[in-house]
Design a binder for these strands. Structure first.
Lengths: 201, 201, 201, 201
DNA sequence: GGTTAAGCGAGACGGTACGTCCGGTCTTATT
DNA sequence: AATAAGACCGGACGTACCGTCTCGCTTAACC
């Protein structure tokens, strides 16, 4: 997101922003993220790949993390999760989608690095939430429906449930570096819908 | 941990490693971690702070993350969690200790950055687990005891429980940048001991 | 001097050049020259100081040196040298005026930088001469009068005399960085009027 | 000249300076000076041409002018002026050598730019004098000999004579951009040896 | 107890990237 | 049509670190 989104404030003079340039930068960022990862991605490389001056990037984004998050938010498609209406099926699909995003897309590998930037730039937290928002919205709807049909208690804390499920996957896979398998997905589904603590098989 | 702990290679002649130097490096790393954080910490600064040549650091650790994890493992005390024998009390204390570590110590701010290094150097995952191990051991014991006294089912998947609890806190605080309060701790205790999903107050 | 002083091109329609703008640019240039010197002066700063677009400057001057020379020519007053009719007095005053210009005004500090631009843009040489012309005219008149009254030989090469005197001062002060004092002025006066080579005191 | 020539003070530790690197930088500087001139020469280009890191250049020279002057001092040969013992012949040859240096070598085109740096870095003046010193020494000797044999007055101010001759050429050619021909050389010789002011032909 | 190889500090080195400034050019809206 | 504002590409700035490489000194471990 640019330093100032589309503030209609003062009509301002000057040349208008070139939208092609803007898009080229985001595209180059997404491409490099997939190719070389967040750590190796440098503003210099993005500029060169996008055929753009470095200053143009710094004009609109004040840090690598800001650029990357906007690129991810605009350039990484939401997993299309079919909604059946069955709480169990839908919840399982939602968790699997989260697992997929964290495990199989550049976003997964990138999120810890972005999170690491929060202490240095608190605005990063808001940007991360902005990226997560649409994914989280989908999960919230599924749980909301589950509560509506009585599959979970009506006063369940949906935000906490989401943090539990995503957090467990995130932590196991991205922090501890342990593979997350279908068993864990099933454990999470059972936990939410059956109040069943994870058991050993 | 040095590249080769006690390599029995050709002990022919030569000189042994200087333990003072080794310790000075770890101390400087811990100090800098607390002062300026992981991102700003550079090998060069550690060397200068420790009064040591850069090459000496590279001789024993092959990356910043390796050095930092060893420094954290040796230089950051384990929270002393008193054990009462009461599952609820002990579990709450354990979760609070985890929360404290993630929230109030340099380790919390550092973990995401270390995790971000995993894709580049898979050995990092093992090192992170090594740092987490003693903390995790404590939690495992508490849950083991809870299972023994019937406070949780006997066949509960202790590893999954730990990932759930720590993951939820980690994710909410360190990834989403949202404060974690006592309510969440209570929710986690209830979840584990009562099979009670988090509810809104 | 504008690229086309009075371009008689297609005066058809359109709008005339704004003389206020023109003067504001020259004023800003003179001010910045005095404040920060030629090297630090940038078109960007001049534009900003003058409240003018960069393109407006580039439209009328094609280089920093062209702008600065015109600004100096129009914005730096000629030293008022009183003419007594006495060759020695007038010559001394003329040399002192040159010394003053080279030593105590921004022009002195700027001339070497402008000269340095000659190899890149030969037009610079003509512009420099244009700035020097009125100063040189004054000196020429003094020497002309001296020749007329027989204080110097009638066929003396006035241009060479001027280059000798100004060159010696310029070279000693601005190239070698050595202070030029009253002794040197006297040496030059004696050289021209008495044919007396410089002596040690 | 490096920031600290060869100060034998503290024997200092650390790796010794690599003389090949040092020479490669000076060589690249001289080559670029001849090819593209002082203004277009950038530290970046020198580094790349010499196959050297930029920081290595900055370690030993703190500015472009410092580097260029040392390169010129070490990389540009002194004109070999044969000494006959005849004051007129030798003086003429000396002046012609100076004319040659200022007119036909990169040094000439470079000197005004270096001089322009003096106000920003006074140390530049000393560096320029260092470059001029051997050339000036040669001239001084010639004039010294002329004084010894009575071709010029015994108490002549040799430094002033040199500034007069070199200054006149420098100023006419490099500042005013006017060609300097053999006539001027002859005028200078006559001035010094005959006390003859320049005359029109 | 003398020899010797490794440990070590210091720091030079080739690189890469940083974040900034400016040069020139071009576009937009205003006057 | 000339302008103020300012976006844009490109190039260079001077700095910080990276990880590697000498240097010359010190010191433990072996003969």
């Amino acid at each position: 997101m640019p330093k100032e989104a589309a503030a209609p404030g003062p009509p301002s003079a000057g040349r208008a922003r070139n939208p092609h340039t803007h898009q080229a930068i985001l595209d180059a960022t997404v491409a490099l993220l997939a190719e070389i990862g967040y750590q190796e991605l440098s503003i210099e490389r993005v500029a060169s790949r996008a055929g753009v001056g470095k200053a143009t990037i710094y004009r609109w984004w004040n840090s690598k993390s800001a650029l990357v998050i906007e690129a991810m938010a605009h350039g990484m498609p939401l997993a299309e999760v079919p909604r059946t209406g069955d709480p169990r099926t839908d919840l399982r699909a939602t968790i699997e989608a989260a697992l997929h995003t964290l495990t199989d897309t550049p976003a997964g590998a990138t999120l810890p690095a972005l999170a690491a930037d929060i202490p240095r730039d608190p605005a990063t937290a808001e940007r991360i939430r902005q990226f997560l928002r649409p994914r989280r919205d989908a999960a919230r709807e599924v749980l909301h429906h589950a509560a509506a049909v009585g599959a979970v208690p009506a006063d369940v804390d949906i935000e906490a449930i989401i943090d539990l499920c995503v957090g467990a996957i995130f932590y196991r896979k991205l922090v501890r570096g342990v593979e997350v398998d279908a068993v864990m997905v099933e454990q999470l589904v059972s936990l939410v819908l059956d109040g069943q603590l994870p058991r050993n098989e």
